[in-house]
């Protein structure tokens, strides 16, 4: 239903917004597109919906090429952009009627269908309200209604949960899950908990590249190689705990917990990081108050994956930036290191 190969998009400048993206999404799947702001989620979605062309690569949506058969794709895709853009001077009904008309629906089917989707998003009683006068949550629901009004095969939703209260989130989540049973849904988010609840598969994207792709559960399993624990000391006036912990072999990340003042540490599972941290704390005359394991959440996995991808990129950049002499020097150093080992 969605098949993307080598998709690349350059805006002005040398840095691509997305670089060589490849992924797929089948009917019945709800694929989550997860990444921080500026990762390339909106760019990808705008290409898939025919809003703008890619610089390179290929994308097939609902069986049609988005570049060469844009109109055919647009007939079969429902799109909810990030900041739900609505015409404010008309009523909810008029708006949906217009959007249905733009998708080629004619009366009397159009009227029936508008009524049906308004009912689906629970906005039937506000059909005659001016769009300008409805709340943000309602606008989000109207936005969702316009995305499904023409019964599309593929739904592309850019941050559909933003600005909703918990009740509305639950409603929209259920709606998306219902819609996803017979369609292909792709939704972007930087909210991990939401993606975990609604998606069957997750693509993690950072700096225009996909850094991981799996089911939410499998992603967590992949990270079984990592352990997370919490450490707190009493008399760390100099604030050197973080530095100490980071110096322990196997520790990938240490994050200060603002509320309780301790450290959240992520380390490789096979390393002996926990006892080593304990020993180091004691030998530095700090009083160890707490040291306990924590579960890995998707949040941690996400941070970890994006950090890894960034480290990789940084390494590449470092090598790229070297001139020939520096490159030779560095290569020699590495050889010497190998020999001494």
């Amino acid at each position: 239903m969605i098949q993307v190969e080598g998709l690349t998009k350059y805006y002005l400048g040398d840095q691509p917004a997305i670089s060589n993206l490849s992924f797929y999404a089948d009917r019945g799947e709800i694929v989550g597109f997860l990444g921080p702001n500026g990762a390339g989620k909106t760019t990808t979605m705008r290409i898939l919906t025919g809003y703008m062309p890619a610089s390179a690569g290929k994308a097939i949506v609902a069986g049609y090429d988005v570049m060469r058969q844009s109109i055919e794709v647009r007939q079969r895709v429902g799109y909810l952009p990030e900041t739900v853009p609505l015409y404010k001077d008309i009523t909810v009904w008029q708006y949906l009627d217009y959007m249905a008309g733009l998708h080629g629906m004619t009366n009397p089917d159009r009227t029936d269908r508008v009524e049906e989707v308004l009912d689906q998003v629970d906005m039937l009683d506000r059909a005659d309200s001016l769009v300008a006068n409805i709340s943000k949550g309602m606008r989000q629901r109207v936005g969702l209604a316009q995305a499904i009004v023409h019964n599309p095969d593929v739904l592309i939703l850019d941050e559909p949960m933003v600005g909703l209260d918990p009740d509305q989130r639950r409603e929209v989540r259920e709606l998306i899950q219902n819609l996803g049973e017979a369609r292909t849904v792709m939704l972007s988010s930087h909210d991990l908990a939401e993606v975990e609840k609604v998606c069957t598969r997750v693509l993690v994207i950072n700096r225009g590249r996909i850094v991981a792709e799996d089911s939410p559960e499998a992603l967590a399993n992949n990270m079984q190689g990592m352990q997370r624990f919490y450490v707190r000391v009493d008399n760390d006036a100099a604030g050197k705990l973080k530095e100490l912990v980071m110096s322990v072999e196997g520790v990938a990340e240490a994050k200060v917990d603002d509320r309780k003042g301790g450290l959240e540490v992520i380390a490789t599972r096979d390393s002996n990081a926990r006892p080593a941290v304990a020993a180091l704390i004691v030998s530095n005359n700090l009083d160890l108050l707490e040291l306990r394991p924590l579960d890995m959440s998707l949040e941690d996995i996400f941070l970890q994956l994006t950090a890894e991808a960034e480290a990789e990129l940084a390494d590449e950049d470092e090598w790229d930036d070297l001139d020939d002499d520096e490159f030779d020097d560095l290569a020699e150093d590495l050889d010497e290191d190998e020999e001494t080992k």
């Binding site: 705008r46 025919g50 647009r74 952009p81 609505l86 959007m99 733009l102």
Partner: peptide, 14 residues
Amino acid sequence: RTGTHELLLTAPVR
């Protein structure tokens, strides 16, 4: 300016 052109340009109209 308001961004509504994004939906207009992704609707199946030329």
